[in-house]
Structures are given as C-alpha cells and as structure tokens.
Design a protein around this nucleic acid. Structure first.
Lengths: 342, 342
DNA sequence: GGTTGCAATGGCAGCGCTGTCATTGCAGGT
DNA sequence: ACCTGCAATGACAGCGCTGCCATTGCAACC
C-alpha cells in the first residue's frame, strides 16, 4: 500500500513546461527557450511547440522563472498617495518608461506615513525587485538601511535637495518656493498670505513654504496670515480656507497656495465672494495642473513636469544594474507660469 | 582540479533562511515558521532567531516562498487609464480593501486598448495572482478565455450590464444615462446638446450616452448638437468643445457631458463668455467629483462611488478562493446630485 | 572515410522557500 | 519504571523554471 504523499500540485492543476515539452516531444529546455523568445531554435520546432502551448493554454509561471533566473523583472514604486493627482501622473511617466522593457511596476502607497513606508518597502524588497523608485528623501532609519543594503538600484524622486542613496530625480522644492516668492515680490505684492495643507506630512509642500518664507524674510516681509489644514489636498479645502483667511486678514494682496488644487478652490471662493482677482487679491498656486490653465482666468503657478520625473526615474534604473560610483541627480526643473491671477 | 560550477548565487549575495538557521542554530523550518508568524515556536527561540534576522538583515524571498507554497498573494488590477481620476480613486478603494490582508496589488494600465489589455492580462496571469480585478466587461476573445481558464477569482468592475466571468461590481451606465436624461426632462429641458470624448474607446461613457439618447427618443427628442473629441478627458477639452457647440447651436437649453471634467470646462467657458448658467444654458456632468461641488455653482451631476467599487471588488475576492456557482453582481448604485447648473 | 564546426536540442542541478511528516524531549499520569 | 500526549523542532522533497554544459546530427571540408 504505497503512501501517497499529497503533492501540492494536485490542488492546482496547472500546465507546466514539462507538460508542453512532453506533448510537443521536445525537452523542457527547448520549450523554455521558445517561451523566452530566444533564437537558436528551429522554426519548425518553434511552431510545433507554440501550437501545443496554445492547445494546452500554457501560461509560463514567472514566479518559478524569477526564482530560477534570479531576476524578477519587477520595479517597486513607492508613493505617498493616489488622491493627489501628481502621483498618478508620475506613474504614467513610469509606465511610459517601462513600456517595451520586460519590466513590471509594483505600486505601494504609504499615505505619507514613514512607518507605513517602512512596511511597504520591506514587503517590496521581498519580491526581489530589480529597482525601487520611491517618492521623497525622508525615510526611517530602517527603511534607509534596507534600501542601501538591498543592493538594487534606488531612485528617490520628487526632490533633489538631499544626498540620495543611489539616485534622485526631481527638482528643488526649496528653490521653487524661493522663485515663487521672488516672482511675486517683483510684481509688487507685499502683503502675503499662505494657504496650505498637510502640515509636516507633505515635506515637499513644507519645503516650498520655507523657500517662500526665506525669500520674504530677505525682503523684510513675512506671511501676514496662514491657514493650514490636515489631511489630503482638495479644491473644497482650498475654497474653505481661502474664505477663512479672507475673513481674518482682509487686507492681503496675494495668497500663495501649497498647490493648484487649493488655489483653484481659492479662485472659486473669490468668484463667489465677488473678489476681483488679481486686483483685490492675487492668487498663486503650484504644480501647473491642466485645470489651472482652463480656468476663466488661467492660474498663475509654477509648472513642474511630473510625467517626466517618472520617465527619467525609469531611465536611470534602466541605465545600469549596479549603482554608479557617484550618485546620480537629475534635475527636471520647474518654470513660472504667469497666468492671470497674480 | 575540481570543476567549480558557477553557482548563480555567487553573483547576488543574499542572505537566505539557511544562513539565518545556521547562525541561530535551528533548522530552516523553524526560521520559516517564525518568518511566517506561525506560533508553535518557543518564545526564546523566536527571539534568538529574530535577533539573527536583524543582525544579518535577512529579507525573506517571497518569490521562493510563493513558488513553494503555490500562493503568490498577488492581486492583479487592470485599468484603462491613470489620467482619468476615477481610476486612482478605485485603486484607493482596492488598497483600502487589501489593507491588513497579506495581499499586494499589481497594477497594469491598458490605455483603453483591448489588445494591450490582452498582453497585460497574460503578463499578470504569469505571476499566478490570487485574483484579477479588471475594469470593464469588454475583452478580446483571448483575454476572456485566459481569465476563464485561469481558475482564479475575477472581478470585472465599473459596469454590471453584462454576464460576468465570475463577478461584477459597479453600476449600470445605461441606467445612469437614462436617469440623467429623465431628470433633465422633468426639469423642463427640451433642447439637448452632448459634449463627450473618447468615442468608441470609453465604452462606459458611450453606454451613458446611449441611455440618454434612448430616454430622449422616448420623449420624441434627440441631441440637437454633439461634440465628441478623441483621446483623454480634460477640463480644457470640455471648455473648447463647449465653445464650439455653443457657436454651432446657440439655441440649446442644456448640455450633457460625458463626465465632470468636461462639464467643469463647460462651466468655465460659460463664465468667460458671459453665458448665464442654468438660465441661458444648463450643464450636467457625470461622476460627482469633488471639484464639481466646490465650484461657485455646484455642478449638477450623477454621483457614483468609485472608492466603494474598489473596496467591494476586493471584498468579493476575499470572500472565497473559488468561484461561486452563481456569478456575483454587486450594484454600487448612483445618485442624482441636483447642484445648481441644471 | 574521417574530421571539423555549428546549429539544434537535451539533461539536470539548483533557485530559496514551504508543506508534510518524523522525531525529540519532557511533564504528568499509572 | 513505563507509557502517553503534546509542544517544539528537524528533515527533506518538491514548487516550475532556467543556467550551464553535454550531446547529437549533419553539412562542409580535407
């Protein structure tokens, strides 16, 4: 009475290379070569095998393949949020960059939480990705160490105001803040208000804020009123906070927003309240979203190219499997968009 | 002279279970149990092993784990686009549903291209996912067959106007179109115009359009003017197309848009052109985006809950590993939001 | 006929882990 | 002293594929 060990395979009933090989009367190796698109296989054989593949509905198992070849072809992507449109835009850039390579992105979201980031990075690394693209430069010590020791290519994107683990792609948010303030000062504005969100959580918004504040300080000025809310950025919040700040500080002549979403909300408030923009109050955003340009008055803002950030980040990791001696920094820049609101 | 076969492992220098086991003086099994959070391990042993894990910086290899256990813990997600905000919103729902389970989503984008969808689905299935969540019900024959034969749970989300492969979560876009038209007829509008995008590509927008048209036809009416553009939906296009249709058909009394993005653009045009909304011209969108509610005049539209679609889709697949006898259909519904523009 | 060179194919040991079963050690009962 | 039961741990064969090397068969040449 033979003891019949319950083989795992009995549960799932998958078609394997061996099944295909047996049926097509070739070896496993040949099937494997064909599935990987290698040449060195006779055309007749290839056709016969492919016919069998179709007949059996064989789908190669990339998990087994990855284990055997020690190459997962996965690119881990870590972003803080999906609700802020800038991140899906970056993902589009990443997908565009990955198109045609045999690599797959695996996306994880941290909700701007560094501890959660640590968890998702650990989970991502468990998949042995060929590279990790991660938003921001601020990580827990453990995250930092894991990324460093993983040996894989790591691109920190969005900001470049730091020494990267391996590479950084983005622009300087501090400089962007300075540029915004300088621009507005040049245009003659003196009484500044700030409408933002996220507080400490969105470090990049904070950097822009700091850049503006520093530039104002140099001119002997400061924000005369500020309104900062928690949680995610929305047009509705921008509108509500603008209403609030206008009530509290009616004599401001310009409002800077942490981003375009909020600024659009601000403009909506002004429209409703009969505040003439930019005469009574000027508005200045950040990001250069499409919607800003379609407004009745195009929103004055700073444009940054998110799509390109994603694309360039991928290019960096595709450039080589090993980290270069010198860490790579790609500055995708930003530009002032004059618009009609400031 | 021993022939030294070049072991693959020599290239990458990873820490494995065996390394940890050897150093902690236990067996591989014990390390494996601990890493998988099983109990049945003495507390002292667990601590000793975990100390070694930290010391060596061991990161379990989920590829090997998945192969051994025949369970990848992956959930494949297929969406047509990232630039249409509704899909990131669904992804948020999916992530929320996955939170706390040990499952990881893997996202692929098809650009509304069914052939690309086929490729993407094939690549996804190669990762042996535990489930596939796919937007829409329209697939190539090959895609359909692959999904059916894969044996994994498949949820088609967004629409429920079809017989699903396994399960469907969403709402009826046809009914939504009918509801929109009926609502507008009740409010006394008679001369309809349509502003849309994507043509055949966005089948769901098309279904809503058809629903409206059918309802109008019942009332002996039809769209008197239409403007449909290619490519993706943007506020700017909505604005431009509204300008266009207003020029061509100045006597319309209501404009229905394929979605809120376009409708917001339409409102912007009206603001700029001095068209009084809804007196001169009423506007009606679709989706119920946040921005619509923050406008100076809240946009009249139909609200659908994308986040919930994602979340419920996950719940369906978590409910069981095998497909139920009877296919599951979850109607997440929609509701008219009266707003102030129609 | 015997070689040589090459294209085409085969064989098989792992890849790093987990499922399954076997074994060990020891407290508690007889 | 012996057994029983159970908690804790170990042993080991795969999981499905690919990298590496060996082998085969045949055309082209000496």
């Amino acid at each position: 009475m033979a003891k019949q060990r319950q083989r795992l395979t009995d549960r799932k009933s998958k078609v394997t290379v061996s099944d295909v090989a047996r049926m097509a009367e070739v070896s496993d190796s040949t099937v494997s070569r064909i599935m990987r698109g290698q040449d060195l296989v006779a055309e007749a054989t290839r056709e016969r095998v492919m016919a069998t593949v179709r007949a059996l509905g064989y789908v190669p198992n990339r998990i087994a393949g990855s284990l055997a070849s020690l190459d997962s072809r996965l690119v881990g992507v870590v972003i803080p949020s999906l609700s802020n449109i800038v991140f899906p835009e970056i993902l589009q850039g990443i997908n565009a960059g990955l198109e045609g390579t045999h690599r797959q992105s695996v996306i994880s979201v941290t909700d701007y939480d560094l501890d959660k980031e640590e968890v998702v990075v650990r989970n991502l690394l468990a998949w042995q990705p060929a590279a990790v693209l991660i938003a921001g430069s601020m990580h827990t010590e453990a995250t930092q160490r894991m990324l460093e020791n993983s040996g894989v290519r790591v691109v920190e994107f969005m900001e470049i105001d730091h020494k990267p683990i391996d590479a950084a792609v983005g622009f300087s948010h501090l400089s962007a803040g300075v540029a915004a303030a300088r621009h507005l000062l040049q245009r003659g504005y003196r009484r500044f208000g700030y409408v933002g969100y996220g507080g400490e959580k969105d470090r990049r918004a904070l950097m822009r804020y700091k850049g503006m504040r520093a530039c104002l300080a140099e001119a002997g000025l400061a924000f005369e009123a500020e309104s900062v809310s928690d949680g995610q950025t929305t047009v509705a919040k921008g509108r509500a906070q603008t209403a609030d700040i206008c009530a509290r500080a009616p004599d401001l002549d310009v409002l800077t927003f942490s981003n375009d979403d909020m600024a659009v909300g601000g403009l909506f408030h002004c429209m409703s309240a009969g505040i003439s923009v930019p005469n009574d109050l000027a508005l200045f955003g950040f990001n250069g979203l499409d919607i800003g340009r379609a407004l009745p008055q195009p929103l004055s803002t700073i444009r940054a190219n998110r799509f390109e950030i994603g694309k360039r980040a991928v290019e960096v990791v595709l450039a080589g499997e090993t980290r270069p001696e010198q860490s790579v920094i790609v500055d995708t820049g930003f530009e002032i968009f004059e618009g009609a609101t400031a």
